Computed example of a mutant assay.
Amino acid sequence: MEKRALTSDILVSPLGLGTVKFGRNQGVKYPKGFELPSDQQIDHLLGLAFDLGINLIDTAPAYGLSEERLGKRLLNRQEWVIETKVGESFEKGESSFDFSTDATRLSVERSLRRLKTDYLDLILIHSDGNDEKILKYEGVLDTLMQMQQQGYIRAVGISSKTVEGALLAYELGCDAVMATYNPTYTDELPVLEAAAKQHKAVLIKKAFASGHLDKIGGADPVEQALGFIFAQQGVTSVVLGTLNPDHLRHNVQVAKAVLGA
């Protein structure tokens, strides 16, 4: 798969590997429960993703053990684009949010330790839904941009919940936005259109409606969803989470067909 520009010096695969299932199985919205994978399963999935041409890894402190487990395995660090988040923590089955300056810096430093790296390619603000308030009045964005200047972070953005918040993020100089878009939910299309117009990055979450492929329909819901999403020129990468190697292979096969790769 041909890489796409996240920024002028960061290239990512059009599919990214989401890793919430590597570290958390509580409080998630998937249709079926699941057990956390073994170390061997994670090793196999990461190796397969790499062999299939995926270089973007999506994680977050709110994904439980995900960062820590990845840090023990991404030994060929330079080959991966690691995207994590700040603002949300998940402990004892509940999420909490803190977008203050101190919490942001501590979160970044913790992620660096957990992921065993001295820099992070992209950090997104893990929004609680109050996008505009977070961006305008909390210390998180200024802190991230300061840490970006200091070399700890290569790119900054937000995993947004509103169109207004995503557009504001672009206005304020963010490099990327993570937005929701799939055949069953198109409310955030203006974000994709703005990304294309402004030559900014947009990552797509919930491409398969959080695993509810039955809602997408079509002979092959994966093809239906990816074809629909990649029809938008602004899309940089679609982040998909799976623990099933066959599903991962199929996702890549479909994406390559859709993109003409």
Rank of each mutant, 00 (worst) to 15 (best):
Y181I: 14
V191W: 01
G173V: 06
Y181T: 09
D214W: 13
Q198P: 11
T184R: 14
K161G: 11
L213S: 12
D220W: 02
H212F: 15
K200E: 13
K161T: 09
L167W: 05
E188L: 11
G165F: 09
K215T: 10
A219F: 08
Q198K: 15
S159N: 03
A201Q: 11
D175Q: 09
A195F: 02
E164P: 02
T162W: 00
L213Q: 14
Y185P: 03
L168Y: 03
P183N: 02
Q224W: 14
V163K: 03
A166E: 03
I158V: 01
E188V: 05
S160N: 10
V163S: 09
G165R: 02
G218H: 13
A169L: 05
Q224I: 04
K200V: 15
D187Y: 12
T186A: 11
E171D: 15
Q224F: 14
G173D: 03
E171K: 15
P221H: 03
I158G: 00
I158W: 00
E193G: 09
A179P: 01
L168H: 06
S159E: 00
G217Q: 02
L168C: 05
P183K: 00
H212T: 11
K200I: 12
A201D: 08
A169H: 03
G211D: 06
G165K: 01
F208H: 15
T180P: 04
M178C: 05
A196R: 09
E188T: 08
A179S: 12
M178Q: 12
A169P: 01
A209R: 09
I158N: 01
G173F: 06
A196I: 05
H212D: 14
D214F: 14
Y185D: 10
T184H: 12
D187H: 10
A201W: 09
G218Y: 13
Q198V: 13
S210P: 08
I204P: 11
P221W: 01
D220G: 01
A201G: 09
L167N: 05
A179W: 00
A201C: 12
I204H: 12
D175R: 10
G211Q: 02
V222F: 11
E164V: 05
N182Q: 07
E193S: 07
H212R: 15
V222Y: 11
L192M: 04
H212V: 10
A195W: 00
S210L: 11
A209E: 07
L167F: 07
K215P: 04
G173E: 10
G173Y: 06
N182C: 07
L168K: 04
V222C: 06
Q224H: 15
L189K: 10
E223I: 09
S210D: 12
G211A: 01
L203W: 06
T184S: 13
L168T: 08
P190E: 11
A194K: 07
A169Q: 02
A169C: 04
D220V: 02
L189W: 05
E223M: 13
I158Q: 02
K197W: 03
N182E: 11
A195M: 02
D187M: 10
V191L: 01
I216L: 10
Y181Q: 13
T184Q: 15
L168N: 05
